[in-house]
Design a protein around this nucleic acid. Structure first.
Lengths: 212, 212
DNA sequence: GTTGTTTTGTTAAAAATTTCACATTATCTC
DNA sequence: GAGATAATGTGAAATTTTTAACAAAACAAC
């Protein structure tokens, strides 16, 4: 179905938000929605919504709008939420634990299979019903469980130590909470960075800006 | 010092990354850096770096480059990291806890003063040496501690319940981990959203894209 | 000092993104 | 079923962002 003219990152980053709003409409049994109504709801322009949707071939009907249910399903397909990606988390500290417990991986097409730690106190325990393993079992686990995604919740220098191992065993997709620059070292990877402290500094800037 | 021609959000979002790289250079006792060297390091264009820095008046010297130490200090001033913002966290669940423990608030110009929870099992305990208080003491705490920022680590509908209270007691700055759309309700707020699940869906899209 | 090299600050061009505008097509009402 | 209304899809304009290019300024070496 996709037009596939190389979708820009600006569009891609808006897709999850569309999906959220459309899902909520579906939950409230809304049958259809126009780009202008959705725009009003999401506080964006109707034009942008239509342009964005049209990147994927356009799934509306002139004079009618968009079918919410159809839109939702299309979005799920586009985002790949109906596929399954076997996932591991590296690091069972505060962050890794929070990610494991807080994110509904299953709902987003990810299957969390294991968590890896170096701290012996935590190894052997469970987090969110998932076993915490020692790093020594990492490579074998990746192979036997068909892991394709690693979530990095360890400090920058720990990533430096472990990244080659992951890459060389076929892991090319990363959800990266560390400040290690993965795509610099391995350019044929797909890396999604979450830099929370950058976000906080951005907030700091904007607060400070108004004070000047 | 700032030119203040209304800095674009694109530039603002790059500032923390600059600050990170410059800080690292400073730690490694690098005295000076040229835009081209920094560009090589950060994997961006030298032109962009110079353009970005010049939004704030330009702090380099032709033929020399940028003094790392000076650059770092300027960045700190620009980002407002040397100011102090009294902060509270709403929600001491997995996420709130991880944020409290994982983020070095002090280093980013924020002073964490309290954490608020509804779960009676957690109220009265401490997280990262910070007391966990009941919601009943919220308003009084805001006033007596000169709180200006709230970190929202509670679900969307809980935010709906509490946001008016926060806003009406003078809190206009939010670090928002929930999916509640704060700026829609109160337009004169400064909101920095961290939507981790959106980030994960973006990753899912990009992984899926290569499969098609 | 003078010359050559380096590198910024800045102007201009290129590219990307967003918004506008409207023809076309569908729905809805009477 | 005809006319009025609604709303998409899309080409083009406007805006924003990024990159390129270079003149001016500082440094370094001799």
């Amino acid at each position: 179905m996709p037009k596939h003219d190389k979708i820009s990152m600006s569009v891609i980053r808006r897709l999850p938000r569309y999906y959220r709003f459309i899902s909520e409409l579906a939950e409230n049994d809304v049958q259809r929605i126009s780009s202008s109504k959705l725009a009003e709801l999401m506080n964006v322009t109707a034009s942008q919504i239509r342009q964005d949707f049209n990147c994927f071939g356009g799934f509306g009907q002139q004079g009618y709008g968009y079918s919410v249910e159809f839109l939702k399903q299309e979005m799920e397909t586009i985002l790949g939420l109906n596929k399954v990606n076997n996932t591991i988390i590296l690091g069972a500290g505060n962050l890794g634990k929070a990610v494991a417990l807080h994110i509904n991986f299953a709902e987003k097409g990810f299957k969390l299979k294991g968590i890896f730690e170096t701290n012996p106190d935590i190894i052997g325990t469970q987090i969110a019903d998932i076993n915490v393993y020692p790093e020594s079992s990492l490579i074998n686990f990746i192979k036997t469980n068909d892991i394709s995604i690693a979530v990095l919740c360890i400090p920058k220098n720990s990533v430096g130590e472990i990244i080659d191992k992951l890459y060389n065993n076929g892991i090319k997709n990363f959800w990266n909470f560390s400040h290690y620059d993965i795509s610099r070292k391995y350019s044929d990877t797909i890396v999604e960075n979450v830099h929370m402290s950058d976000s906080l500094m951005t907030l700091s800037y904007r607060i400070n800006e108004t004070r000047q």
